[in-house]
């Protein structure tokens, strides 16, 4: 029983990083209605920038964190300018494939700068733990959870309590009408994209600091985990992204504990598939049909 609760705690902690990744994804998908496959690799670029500063200039965790977030946001803006801004309505697949091409580009750029398979990444709180009776919680995990909940709240407040959020929701609801009432759609999209990538950067920094290593595979990992958590939680829902992430984390730790490491991902995918087939809207979604192959209908 202790194991069960400890696993659940670990799952929630690890899941908070998935939730953070899904949060950024949700903002991008919500605003663009398009899939940015380069989301993870953008974060990886931030991670590599932070690693370079750490290795060559001995930067501390705060500077590294800033560099990761900034790097991710810049890479995100680059992706938006190249793959999303110039695409016409109805070219959703082209945007997606284009973002995949940029993924290849970013990955090779990272390998050129740091060619080894893995590099060390500065730890946060060096894996210290807190004890609650029989249970342990890592401090860096706790920071991750707090960040996830805090950022989710911030995104929710921004969307529903600010003018910028109002503009974004107008764009989500009807981009053409939003343009007609004087909202600068292109600028809002760029801002949303940069903000989403920066949120991803926060997630990336925390995950890398917990792992204490960075690899070029991080990009694919981040895209996949963010995508799964977002789909389980429900497309376009901010609470859904966080809850989906936490649920994914709990499922993964339990399956790893009871069935072994290979079943960890297997069961996560089985759950995802089952969710999509039985309840495509996820936990919080309203099961709309955001068809990325056709332009948004009025």
């Amino acid at each position: 029983m202790v194991d069960f609760f400890q696993n659940t705690i670990d799952g929630v902690m690890i899941g908070s990083s998935y939730g953070l990744l899904a949060l950024g994804f949700t903002v991008i998908f919500g605003v663009m209605r398009r899939l940015n496959l380069s989301y993870g690799p953008s974060i990886m670029i931030g991670g590599y920038l932070g690693t370079v500063l750490y290795l060559n200039h001995g930067a501390g965790p705060l500077v590294v964190a800033g560099a990761v977030v900034l790097g991710a946001a810049i890479a995100g803006v680059y992706v938006e300018r190249l793959c999303f801004a110039p695409m016409k309505a109805g070219a959703g697949i082209a945007s997606m494939v284009s973002s995949f091409a940029i993924w290849m580009q970013l990955e090779q750029a990272a390998i050129l700068v740091l060619p080894r398979h893995t590099y060390p990444f500065p730890p946060l709180a060096t894996g210290a733990t807190l004890e609650f009776g029989p249970f342990f919680v890592r401090i860096d995990h706790l920071i991750m959870l707090v960040c996830a909940l805090g950022l989710a709240a911030a995104v929710q407040v921004t969307l529903y309590r600010t003018r910028f959020g109002l503009a974004l929701r107008a764009i989500i609801g009807h981009p053409v009408a939003a343009h007609l009432v004087g909202i600068n759609v292109r600028r809002a999209m760029l801002l949303a994209f940069a903000a989403a990538s920066a949120i991803g950067g926060v997630a990336g920094f925390l995950v890398l600091a917990v792992d204490q290593q960075v690899t070029p595979m991080f990009g694919m990992w981040a895209t996949l985990k963010g995508l799964i958590a977002m789909m389980i939680g429900g497309l376009g829902s901010v609470p859904g992204a966080v809850v989906g992430g936490l649920l994914l984390g709990v499922i993964e730790t339990h399956s790893q504990w009871y069935f072994g490491p290979q079943f960890r991902d297997l069961i996560a995918y089985v759950v995802l598939f089952a969710f999509l087939v039985a309840r495509p809207g996820g936990l919080f979604g309203r099961a709309p049909s955001p068809d990325i192959t056709t332009p948004q209908k009025a």
Binding site: L82, C83, P86, M87, A91, A94, S95, V97, S98, A101, I102, W103, M104, Q105, E107, Q108, A109, L112
Partner: peptide, 15 residues
Amino acid sequence: YRMIIFGGLVALLLI
């Protein structure tokens, strides 16, 4: 640099 060049070319082509 080939993926850098090729990735960029594909992105431009799709625009």
